[in-house]
């Protein structure tokens, strides 16, 4: 299946994976709040938290290369935002705040990454519902998650078909144009599908209200 990147490590079977989802959500949020609330002058505590987060990743069998890749993707954005602070003073100050921002962003990101890579989405969803998320939003989330796979499959098929029809180098304009068409076609198909899904729901007696078995 083309879409196994959606939950790459979350279906593992380590000790961390078996913890209840609610406990993991609360723990992760506690770490995140601690990182954000503690002044950066207490950097030894941040260091300890960093060690804790890395240890948790290690226990959960999440490879270091994956962490580095994700951090490498996040870092430019965070640096750019943080650099705005010293830049706004002509590089004459604001470095403390900027470095605090980067450190906090990285630590909280790694903590969240541990949570989402040890808990599959359906378990998170159940935990959200237990933690009081409105039912209609939970149902919509489940629906969206279900159709992510269908839409990604459709996208992959369309890309293959498009590649099969194009040869050689193309001008940037042509690439741009075909990409716009790809997404637009995907939009049209998805809207058509939502129409059919709606018909299928009506066919099984749906009257606009979601009921669940538990």
């Amino acid at each position: 299946m083309a879409v196994d990147f959606l939950d790459r490590y979350s279906r593992g079977s380590t000790w961390c994976h078996r913890w209840p989802a609610r406990l993991k959500i609360v723990l992760t949020l506690a770490v995140i709040v601690a990182v954000v609330l503690l002044p950066i002058s207490l950097w030894p505590i941040h260091g300890c938290l960093a060690c804790l987060i890395f240890a948790a990743h290690a226990v959960a069998d999440i490879p270091l290369s994956y962490l580095l890749r994700r951090v490498a993707l996040l870092l430019p954005v965070v640096l750019l935002m943080a650099l705005c602070v010293p830049l706004s003073r002509g590089f004459s100050g604001g470095w403390e705040l900027a470095s605090a921002l980067v450190a906090r962003a990285l630590l909280t990101f790694l903590a969240a990454l541990w949570l989402v890579n040890t808990t599959p989405f359906d378990r998170l969803l159940a935990a959200f519902r237990q933690l009081g998320m409105p039912r209609s939003f939970v149902v919509l989330l489940a629906f969206t998650y279900r159709y992510l796979f269908v839409v990604f499959d459709e996208l992959a098929r369309m890309r293959t078909a498009q590649r099969a029809r194009t040869f050689g180098r193309r001008s940037p304009w042509a690439v741009w144009n075909s990409t716009v068409q790809l997404v637009a076609m995907l939009l049209i198909r998805s809207l058509n599908r939502s129409e059919r899904v709606h018909q299928a729901m009506l066919s099984r007696g749906w009257q606009g209200e979601f009921r669940t078995i538990d």
Binding site: L140, V151, S194, L202, Q207
Partner: peptide
């Protein structure tokens, strides 16, 4: 129209992919 419910979910999936 109850149609908006599946429409919204599908649209979210589409934008995620898009």
């Amino acid at each position: 129209s109850s149609r908006t419910i599946p429409l919204t979910g599908m649209l979210a999936a589409l934008i995620f992919a898009g």
